[in-house]
Simulated assay, not measured.
Amino acid sequence: MAGQEGPGGFAERLGAEVAGADDGGARIEFTVTEEHLNPAGTLHGGVLATLVDTAMGQAVRSTTDEGEVPATSQLTVTYLRPGRPGRLVVTARVRTRGEHLTVCEAEVEQDGRALAHALATFALLHH
């Protein structure tokens, strides 16, 4: 699983690393630095939202056919505790795949503790 290509775009610019994406699952690793913090000194919620969205998009992409592109149509993030500088891991899994919509779930862990939980619905666009 290690050595996958980067997530591309904004998530890659943030420093997200795809550790693996296969068979409806994905794992992203990320190192929180000072530049990712909000004025309160904790991990900015928008960074976490980007990471879970990216991980779930990678999970969906691992199940799509050529010409199908997942697009987030709904995203809910529950922030369970503040994130701090250091390494974190996002694990995503496709839960239900329909003809046009796919539901995913993601967990974020830092120091072995839950940081956030996310649920998203992706539409499959056809190119």
Rank of each mutant, 00 (worst) to 15 (best):
G3M: 06
Q4C: 13
Q4I: 04
E5C: 05
E5F: 02
G6I: 03
G6W: 04
F10G: 13
A11I: 07
A11N: 03
E12L: 03
E12H: 12
E12G: 14
R13K: 15
G15R: 08
G15M: 07
A19Y: 01
G20Q: 08
G20V: 04
A21V: 01
A21L: 05
A21W: 02
D22M: 01
D22E: 15
G24Y: 10
G25T: 15
R27W: 02
I28K: 03
E29C: 10
E29P: 03
F30I: 09
V32K: 06
T33D: 13
E34K: 09
E35Q: 14
L37T: 06
N38T: 12
N38Q: 15
G41D: 13
G41K: 11
T42N: 11
T42K: 09
H44P: 00
G45N: 09
G45V: 11
G46A: 04
V47A: 06
T50E: 02
L51G: 06
V52D: 01
G57Q: 01
G57I: 04
A59S: 09
R61I: 00
R61L: 07
E66C: 01
E68D: 14
V69T: 14
V69H: 14
P70Y: 04
P70E: 10
S73G: 15
S73Q: 15
Q74G: 14
L75F: 08
T76F: 03
V77I: 07
V77C: 10
T78N: 15
T78K: 10
Y79F: 15
L80H: 11
L80D: 01
P85N: 10
P85H: 05
P85G: 07
L88G: 09
L88H: 04
V89R: 12
T91F: 00
E99P: 04
L101K: 15
T102K: 01
T102Y: 00
E105W: 03
E105S: 14
A106V: 05
E109I: 00
D111Y: 08
G112P: 11
G112T: 13
G112V: 14
G112R: 08
L115W: 02
L115A: 09
A118L: 09
T121D: 03
F122Q: 02
A123Y: 15
H126T: 12
H127I: 06
H127D: 13
H127K: 09
